[in-house]
Amino acid sequence: MAMVREITFAEALNEALDYEMSKDPKVVVMGEDVGQYGGIFGVTKGLLEKYGEERVRDTPIAESGFIGTGVGAAASGLLRPVVELMFIDFLGVAYDQIYNQAAKIRYMFGGKAKIPIVIRTVSGAGASAAAQHSQSLHALFVHVPGLKVVYPSTPYDAKGLLISSIEDDDPVIFIEHKMLYGVKGPVPGEPYSIPLGEADVKKEGKDVTVVATALMVHRALEVAKKLEEEGISVEVIDPRTLVPLDEETILNSIKKTGKLVVVDEAYPRCSFATDIAALAVNKAFDRLKAPVKLVTAPATPVPFSPALEKEWIPSTEKIEKAIREIL
């Protein structure tokens, strides 16, 4: 059997963008340094050369202006913009265009508008980028009705989910964890789509369910592998999309194992982690055999020093400890 080709997470995203741009002339890419520079993490590399300046547009540092432009272009029905918000932390200067405009236009207009925009953005700690370039703010998007939120963990998922996101007629926030860009994995060369709203069971198990996102999926799998050697069977579920949420897969797993650990690299309150815990309590309470454990970052800004940042990010040790506490 032929070896499956392995490429990086960033390259997988690039292939998805390239495919969508080649297929649909309405797809345009906009953002800071996405053209000649190819994106600061290289995701839009080569697109300018292939599709030209009209469709691959470098923008001034004016996030509200260019995201709003993307929203208007989508609402007009004339384009399907893929807009890059360089760091999720910059959300603060552009949030209105996302949560009051993109998210609500369809509803406010009684279902008469479609807003086919994808806002790609970069999250996550681990690069000593400090408090304003390291946050994981996915909960802010999940909180607001009207946005679909995608947060992949592998190159394979990244490609298939970005293709689905661009083809979707609703605003999609597509979050890329910066520590995953260099991660390699098997990715078919041909285009394929992964439907939004389908979780992936990254590892089957029977003793405890771990729900994790993005980089934390990798850490959860590392812990699961270690515990497997002791005969502890951990099931690792990656929801892949936070909105829509594949509630069924998560609940079925909780019902099977009776135990839940949620690992979320984010602030601890009103978070994705608390959301999944609430889901378990609300819809699978009678099947839980132990308290739900949450492994998150503390409620502090992300520190700069590698020594401090390491402590801030949920570690394999903390994940392992949480699992052992409820075994």
């Binding site: 709003g68 432009t69 993307g70 208007g72 272009a73 004339l78 209105d96 265009q97 236009i105």
Partner: peptide, 22 residues
């Protein structure tokens, strides 16, 4: 659309204009 946010709609016109141009 009207807009409840002051200035919120201005970039939308720019986006529609971008669509027109492309």
């Amino acid at each position: 659309g009207a807009n409840g946010i002051v200035g919120g709609g201005i970039p939308h016109a720019v986006g529609a204009a971008l669509g027109i141009k492309l």
